[in-house]
Nucleic acid binder design. Structure first.
Lengths: 249, 249
DNA sequence: TCAAAAGCAAGAGCACTGCTCTCGATGTTG
DNA sequence: CAACATCGAGAGCAGTGCTCTTGCTTTTGA
């Protein structure tokens, strides 16, 4: 795959990378809506039409950036998980570490975050290539809870009857290491985590929440409890785990 | 204010309304990104430049649509609250009714929803005119919990120490009828509600959650518990309250 | 080795966008 | 009735995504 087949192929991948880099720069600076193929080409000193040799359309470029962004936030979440595991942190601290890592990434990359978790572009439907990277954060959360389940068990209420079948399906398709009564709250907590982050990033918390980090940590601690992680009630101290805290006040 | 001052003023407000109507049509059909002033003008049979007599820029038009959309979803939430109160529903059913009303509105108006709760447009900062209408859903939720607090009390854990000051500030500014230990979880639940809805509207639940209404009702019931509403554990039956359920399977 | 094939950059051009400016027609008001 | 404000239309500017054609360079295969 990556054998140096010829100068041409190498040049192609270099130009492709340069385009993506410049596009990421503009995305980070101005947002997806103002990302312009012509501006990218201009900055790279090439004709705009030449750019279409590398990306057949603006949407294809955006898709490439989306995949990279999903990988970026997924890697951040997984790294936080690894670090927390290496520190022999409690399951609650691991949960807090992973969720804080996602929030920190979002604060550091608001436009990329908006691209992933904001309104999808007009007629855009996520191509197959994105669903893998898009799952990484979710799987990191699943990993935390699965470990906790295996080692300490989970504190969970029984499933409501009308949710039973759906929960079993989700468990068998997404998290075979978890019982159905854990999977349903986990999916809910996953989406609610991004509700917390989106409201902060998109400005809905302006004039409402000021101590955002404290508020967030308390909220995700409550989320941890809702997915059955033990010791969540008195857990808001002693979970300095993970990475990234302290950068936002 | 609305006195018939002259034919000119009446014509002006009529044209303004026509522009907004056509813009809403295009917004609902294609999304905010494809909303074009020229297309609106074309559809109305007028020159595009004439449209600038009514809205000084595209952003101003969008702001007007945003205000209307906030009012629309706010009205839906408040109507659900009123109906639930008239039915003498339990506080839990009222909570479920209001949250389901918001979800139903979002499903019926996905592009408007994206405009409100998706990525904000590039350099856009919400003008003062939007913050009032934008608060209506939140206040409807506050009203439900405030009523419950006054009548039955709330089942809530004590506040974590580092959140105490912030919670007291939020309580004094947003919900004077609630104790601080209720306000913090309520703000969290408010944002998490939109996490649930956004993931459904924006496609993040594709290939993940299928029985969406059942899943949503169970999740908001758990949210109700987290804000202290009593009887939330066995509450997933008997809360047919509100309006709008049954329209989505 | 050398011609055919394939990949590539550049320019012109199309249809579209938001927005500005000017000009003439219309309505309002002193 | 005249002065004034308001309004609609057209032309025009700068920008966009995208296509097509024209040459040039690299790769390929007989």
């Amino acid at each position: 795959m990556s054998t140096v087949r010829g100068a041409r192929e190498r040049a192609r991948s270099e130009v492709t990378a340069a385009i993506k880099d410049e596009a990421k720069k503009q995305l980070a600076a101005e947002g997806a809506a103002k990302l312009s193929l012509r501006a990218v080409a201009r900055e790279l000193g090439m004709a705009s039409s030449a750019l279409y040799r590398y990306f057949p359309s603006r949407d294809e470029l955006l898709t490439a950036l989306i995949v990279d962004a999903y990988d970026s936030v997924g890697e951040a979440a997984e790294a936080a998980h690894r670090t927390a595991c290496a520190d022999a942190a409690t399951h609650l601290s691991r949960w807090v570490a992973v969720t804080c890592a996602v929030r920190d990434w979002a604060l550091a990359h608001p436009h990329e975050y908006a691209l992933l978790y904001g309104s999808p572009v007009p007629g855009y439907t996520a191509p197959q290539a994105t669903i893998g990277p898009a799952s990484r954060v979710g799987f990191a959360l699943i990993a935390v809870v699965t470990d906790a389940c295996r080692m300490d068990g989970l504190a969970l209420p029984p499933l409501a009857g009308d949710l039973r079948a759906e929960a079993e399906r989700m468990a068998s398709e997404l998290a075979t290491g978890l019982p159905p009564e854990a999977v349903a709250p986990l999916i809910a907590a996953w989406s609610q985590l991004f509700g917390l982050i989106s409201f902060e990033i998109f400005g809905q918390f302006n004039r409402v929440v000021e101590a955002r980090e404290i508020f967030f940590r308390e909220a995700v601690t409550e989320l941890a409890r809702s997915v059955g992680l033990l010791g969540a009630r008195n857990g808001s101290k002693g979970d300095k785990g993970g990475k990234g805290p302290g950068s936002h006040g």
